[in-house]
């Protein structure tokens, strides 16, 4: 059995990615990309909730056009609903491919240490922690290893992986090549 290469270190990155981009693959990501990815995911969750609200309203209009009024679930309910959708969405995404839409946009991937993926339970716990206490993410700022508190508690990592391989990687165990970042223009 061949072990899968670390995320972003396989043949796909060697062939697809340009040289400088290859040097950052597999490194743990910093706070900017991770926060941006989280914001994107939050937007996605709210968009999903809004879409659900629109579908619900459309269904009510079709069923009773005469007595149609926009439903008013209340702000708290909408927020709880949005956070619930976000939790479910993060859990499913991290447990399957290890990346949400925000991760995909920023080129990130959530990996477990050792062999392979995060697993459903860890993904659920991580999603609950991230949604309930988003401030824990900012431990990345002071962590010497770019790990948030959920990462430390659940022994996970978020690494750069610009490839779109469906194969879930594992936390890298070998030292990646030095990063070469693009010069400032």
């Amino acid at each position: 059995m061949t072990t899968s290469p670390p995320p972003g270190r396989g043949p796909v990155s060697r062939i697809v990615l340009p040289g400088p981009a290859r040097s950052v693959q597999g490194h743990r990501a910093g706070i900017v990309t991770r926060a941006t990815a989280g914001a994107v995911d939050l937007v996605v969750a709210f968009a999903a909730v809004g879409l659900g609200y629109a579908v619900w309203s459309g269904a009510l209009f079709v069923l009773g056009p005469a007595s149609f009024r926009f439903p008013d679930p209340g702000g708290l309910r909408l927020l709880v609903c949005a956070l619930g959708v976000l939790t479910a969405y993060l859990t499913v995404a991290w447990a399957t491919t290890g990346r949400t839409v925000g991760n995909r946009l920023l080129g990130l991937r959530v990996v477990g240490e050792g062999a392979g993926g995060v697993g459903f339970v860890r993904a659920l716990l991580r999603a609950l922690l991230c949604v309930a206490f988003p401030v824990l993410l900012f431990w990345v700022l002071v962590s010497a290893e770019n790990r948030s508190l959920p990462d430390v508690l659940l022994r996970t990592s978020v690494v750069y992986d610009w490839t779109s391989s469906a194969r879930r990687g594992a936390e890298p165990t070998t030292a990646p090549a030095p990063m070469v970042l693009p010069p400032d223009d």
């Binding site: 597999g26 920023l106 700022l141 962590s143 010497a144 165990t173 970042l181």
Partner: peptide, 28 residues
């Protein structure tokens, strides 16, 4: 993505200097 990576590194660099510690090793 490049901009994100660069921003990550800069922020980390600034924080490391503020904390008076050697640059972090965000690798494995």
């Amino acid at each position: 993505r490049w901009q994100g990576v660069s921003a990550d590194e800069r922020v980390a660099h600034v924080v490391d200097r503020m904390l008076h510690r050697r640059p972090r090793t965000p690798g494995p």
